[in-house]
Each structure stands twice: as C-alpha cells, then as structure tokens.
C-alpha cells in the first residue's frame, strides 16, 4: 500500500497512480536514427537493490506524470517531482 506525495494533489494511495517504467533511461531524440540507442531505451534496464527512479502518472487525480524515487528494498519513497520539471 504505497502512498505518494503528489506535488499537485498531496498524499494519495497508489491505487490512483499508474506505473510508467524506469525514469533513469534517457529517451533518444524523436528523429534519432540509431537502432542501438532505441534498443537500449526500450529494452535495457538495471534492476537496482536500492534507490530507483521511476515514472508514475496520477491517472485518477491531476494526470501529471511524476518521477518517483523509491528504494526497492524498503519501498520508502524519498522524492516525488513533476516529470516535466525533472526533464528541464
């Protein structure tokens, strides 16, 4: 029963969110023609025991995509930020 501190809506149950994958991988530019870059982005993942950056969307709330830092060993969530802010 994780709980996220949504920067827009406040603390909410994880039922309201949708997991969106690893936020530590960098998406290639939309017109990057390199198959290796796209392969790495789509398929290659680390599986850290510890801090993990991941995307979550507040689907039944503000619909913002968020970057959540979660410890995979304890499920303790250290930060929740807007994905837009973290990409800038």
């Amino acid at each position: 029963m994780l709980r996220f501190e949504c920067p827009c809506c406040g603390p909410r149950d994880h039922d309201e969110f949708r997991y969106g994958g690893d936020a530590s991988v960098r998406r290639p530019a939309h017109d990057d023609p390199d198959p290796e870059a796209w392969y790495a982005y789509v398929y290659v993942r680390k599986n850290p025991a510890g801090l993990h950056r991941e995307f979550w969307q507040h689907v039944t709330g503000c619909r913002q995509w968020l970057v959540v830092e979660r410890d995979t060993r304890t499920h303790v969530i250290s930060t929740v930020t807007f994905a837009r802010a973290s990409q800038a």
């Binding site: 949708r18 969106g20 936020a23 998406r27 939309h30 995307f55 969307q57 689907v59 619909r63 913002q64 995509w65 807007f82 994905a83 837009r84 990409q87 800038a88």
Partner: peptide, 13 residues
C-alpha cells in the same frame, strides 16, 4: 491518452 501525456511530459516538454 496516457501515452500522449507521457510523451508531452517526459520526452518533448
């Protein structure tokens, strides 16, 4: 919809 929002929020802000 979720995918469009994802791309706008994370890839092409």
């Amino acid at each position: 919809l979720s995918r469009l929002e994802f791309l706008l929020d994370t890839a092409w802000p």
